[in-house]
Amino acid sequence: MSKQDWPLWEVFIRSKSGLHHKHAGSLHAADAEMAIENARDVYTRRNEGVSIWVVESTNIAASSPEEGDMFEGAKSKIYRHPTFYDIPDEVGHM
């Protein structure tokens, strides 16, 4: 077997229809089809999913942790949380 490593894939699982796909983890695989099979074996053994997305990790563009400034502005704007409304009791849990 070649010593060259398989590429890394990020795995997203939808736990049931109607819900969105959620990041489950990552794994190695030679190609997309094998990545889906590996994801099925590694991440859905306990009936966790009804659908799988895989994307090669190198295709994900990410913000860098050093760019903390990006989020600075939002920290002081607590009024953007809808916590100041009075919710009538009849509504129950939201």
Binding site: M1, W6, L27, H28, A29, E37, N38, D41, V42, R45
Partner: peptide
């Protein structure tokens, strides 16, 4: 198994 993922696949 030859790879971690294959190990889990075959054991399944």
């Amino acid at each position: 198994g030859p790879e971690l993922e294959v190990d889990i696949g075959l054991t399944n």
